[in-house]
């Protein structure tokens, strides 16, 4: 049976899309862990002082945490923590390769945002749908940073490529 031709590919870290007034770059995650349970205790233990960020909050220098649910967050660090398992009141799972980071910068980034983000400004959770894909969305210098699970990155990347042309 003929397979359908799939022309889209998962972007490699460093891949870039350029459009009029917008640049989209793919980056690898330097290090990340899923933490659940007592998030305060988790952060105090693993990355003291890391702020807990919600939708479109500005990310500082690492470490920081992107809240996913009431008691779950993605802790982003400069390097893999190498921790796994249940601690006292919280759990850690390595997630260094779970997400790809897509940065959207440029004068027209707000239009991209309007075309991909459904709303929910001010939500305490950074987890949302971005162009129909589950993603964690924050603000980084110059624009948006979108974390999408690696298996779904190809779909988002292609969509952004077509969107730049259509906007």
């Amino acid at each position: 049976m003929d397979e359908r031709d799939w022309t889209t590919r998962t972007p490699d870290p460093g891949a870039t899309l350029m459009g009029e007034g917008v640049t989209i770059r793919c980056a690898a995650e330097s290090g990340a862990s899923l933490v659940s349970g007592d998030l305060d205790a988790a952060i105090a233990s693993l990355a003291p002082g890391a702020p807990m960020l919600g939708l479109l909050d500005e990310v500082p220098e690492k470490p920081f945490a992107l809240r996913i649910a009431r008691d779950r967050a993605l802790l982003c660090t400069d390097a893999p923590l190498g921790q796994e398992g249940w601690r006292d009141g919280f759990a850690v799972s390595g997630a260094d390769d779970l997400f790809l980071v897509i940065e959207i910068t440029g004068a027209r980034r707000d239009e991209i945002r309007s075309a991909c983000l459904g709303g929910g400004v001010g939500s305490p959770s950074a987890a949302t749908l971005f162009a129909g894909q589950g993603a964690l969305v924050a603000t980084c210098p110059g624009g948006l940073c979108v974390r999408v699970e690696a298996p779904q990155a190809a779909a988002l990347w292609t969509h952004l490529d077509r969107l730049i042309a259509a906007l």
Binding site: M1, E3, W6, T7, T8, R9, T10, D97, G132, A150, P151, Q152, A153, A154, A155, T158, H159, R162, L163, A166
Partner: peptide
């Protein structure tokens, strides 16, 4: 909207897709 072709219900992709293709894999 733009949900069409490859953009319609896109499947998830393997990290090693390129390697499999290089080995002659046909995908479904």
């Amino acid at each position: 909207g733009m949900r069409r072709g490859e953009g319609f219900a896109p499947p998830r992709r393997l990290r090693l897709e390129a390697q499999h293709r290089a080995l002659g894999a046909r995908f479904r």
